[in-house]
Nucleic acid binder design. Sequence first.
DNA 1: AATGAATGAGTTTTCATTCAT
DNA 2: CATGAATGAAAACTCATTCAT
Lengths: 215, 215, 215, 215
Amino acid sequence: MSEQDQMINELFNNHEELTEKQRRILAAAIESFAEKGYAATSTSEIAKKAGVAEGTIFRHYKTKKDLLLCIVAPLMAKLLAPFVIKDFDKVLNQEYERFEDFVKAMIENRAQFLKNNMQLFKILVQEIPFQPELKEQFTEHIAKKIFERFRKIVEHYQSKGQIIIMEPYSVVRMLASTIFGYLIARYLLMPEDEWDDEGEMERSIFILMHGLSPK
Amino acid sequence: MSEQDQMINELFNNHEELTEKQRRILAAAIESFAEKGYAATSTSEIAKKAGVAEGTIFRHYKTKKDLLLCIVAPLMAKLLAPFVIKDFDKVLNQEYERFEDFVKAMIENRAQFLKNNMQLFKILVQEIPFQPELKEQFTEHIAKKIFERFRKIVEHYQSKGQIIIMEPYSVVRMLASTIFGYLIARYLLMPEDEWDDEGEMERSIFILMHGLSPK
Amino acid sequence: MSEQDQMINELFNNHEELTEKQRRILAAAIESFAEKGYAATSTSEIAKKAGVAEGTIFRHYKTKKDLLLCIVAPLMAKLLAPFVIKDFDKVLNQEYERFEDFVKAMIENRAQFLKNNMQLFKILVQEIPFQPELKEQFTEHIAKKIFERFRKIVEHYQSKGQIIIMEPYSVVRMLASTIFGYLIARYLLMPEDEWDDEGEMERSIFILMHGLSPK
Amino acid sequence: MSEQDQMINELFNNHEELTEKQRRILAAAIESFAEKGYAATSTSEIAKKAGVAEGTIFRHYKTKKDLLLCIVAPLMAKLLAPFVIKDFDKVLNQEYERFEDFVKAMIENRAQFLKNNMQLFKILVQEIPFQPELKEQFTEHIAKKIFERFRKIVEHYQSKGQIIIMEPYSVVRMLASTIFGYLIARYLLMPEDEWDDEGEMERSIFILMHGLSPK
DNA sequence: AATGAATGAGTTTTCATTCAT
DNA sequence: CATGAATGAAAACTCATTCAT
């Protein structure tokens, strides 16, 4: 089973049974959407790449946009899932005594996930601005739920004296900028360069924690 | 003269004389590309919005892609211009004794520029992954020239003991993540929220310089 | 059993045994054909309305047109049946001494039949011009057989001095115009208006018999 | 100039300027719609018959249905125009002393018009049941305006003692049935037969006026 | 320089029909 | 008998581009 297949399975197999053709359609669509963008990809192209008749696509997905949403929505869910677990903060608080360890673990975990799903991530990032459904889902989850949890975590570590006292929103934003900034540079802008992933990650976290100024 | 017009003038009037119709075409294209994406915008739509005949667009721009490039390329040039000035590093070094002041000045300057050209910036960000010409231009300038200058600046301040000793690439990347992370959150993801721009910027720079850990 | 079912039974049960699914297919097809027209109705729509799989339709009817003909042909047969009975004229002649009574009985009888099968009648009327098979059947029966009988009846009543001497064809055409004109206005053009059916019918026959001029 | 062209001119030239291609599109659409029905005619077929590119059709008519309505709506207007003239009844009353003459003139006039526009009439008749816009236009004009005028005319001749006293609605309906019944039989059902138009018309009017019963 | 009618290849989507299960 | 996934041809419609005026 190819890497693509694994990715698709990881995204879909929990929720639905996929036929072979459906999987091939999804794989083809993901590849093309990531490469050329949603609007610039034609359904006939997807059909050809998937080795199915064009009509077959529309038997499974009512419209082209439906196909896009069926690809991207579960990614967003999975991407954000770890932050939505009910007792997320408690678990983590106990597990990670130091804020730095928490950050490290979280970043590594999510970075790994996105690395495994880079094509999907690219599609998500590209299409969020143009698909109101996605945008809504995104802000609904991020802004309302996830952010609230992060705020609590930040406040928790602040009360323990491990983080400076500062508007939590700014802290969370810097955290997100650091992780996404790295991922975008690494996988979207300059994927063909050689990267010292381990080192880059460590250095990012170090700057995030201790800043650029020498003590 | 509208804000749009000013933006367009700022981008183009140095290089070329624009007729009234050309300006209207550019304004319409920028608006539509930013709103719906390049691929999802039709030339007839642009013509209608600009109040010109469809053929007129193609009199000025050979193809639709040509129109896109004529919009985005000068933006990229202007965006990067300050960093390309011949004696860029010398000038700045003398002007800003402290690295923190340099960062602050640079961020404020470029953030202001992007804020004034947010639609254009959005188009640029969206289309870079799909337009090889843009990508090439981008990496050509950024990776080869700009980055080299930044590396020197970082090394300069490192030698003065104002920044920690660390792989300059990582430092530059964190700098870029901080500024773009802020701008994307601010203007692309949540433009309708209320923002304390001044404060957010300051806090970002503080974290960048001193980190999240208390001393 | 619904009205639809009765109608379908009336049309089909003499000739063939219908399974439950077949009956549901027929009912769905009749409803959709009458509402949107044959060409504008899709087989998948019929299948959905009938609650059967798409393939099931084609198990019973080789093609979509076959389905149409299987619906419309028996209607035409039944509609014309009373006029085809072997000794039609003899029977009628004896039963109705006066031409007016004959006309009344016939009109009432056939109007009732069409009223009971209005959807089917609508389909028939709509599709006759476009389906050569139907047109042929129609002219074959009407023009050649039915008309001949009517001509004889008219001549019979003419010889008895009950009808004016006039080209029988014209007489028959006026008869048909009167009945169909009424039915089309009543059920196809303005079905939602209130109608005094009894009265309208009587007045139609009166005019047909005695004309609009006062004596 | 062909017969088709004359018909099209008669319908459209008063209102709009038609380009050569538009006229060819209209002619092709009318021919195909009349022959196979609106739903069963494809736009590619129309384009081919008209000798234009398929896109050209959609430059002039936003949708296929738009094309249909642009063909049929003016026909309906023209068909009903004579009855909408402001002082329609006065004029006619003075011109035709006898009701029979009025009927004769009117029938001849409208029959001639429909004969000249038989294809269009066929399309109109076929599509009225399926196009709500047409149906509404039709009932709006017929039921509300035309019918009211006819009612007055009938009442006028009734008061002069030339027509029997009877619900005017029924009188009007019989009038319409007579004229449309004749036209449909003549031109739609059996167009290839030989017809004695003059004679048929006269006989129809005679029966309408004096009935089938001998005095 | 500007127009806008015309194009034809291309787009998304539908549909009647088939066939393995 | 019944199913419904699969098909591919064709449908309606769009679009970037051209060109005569």
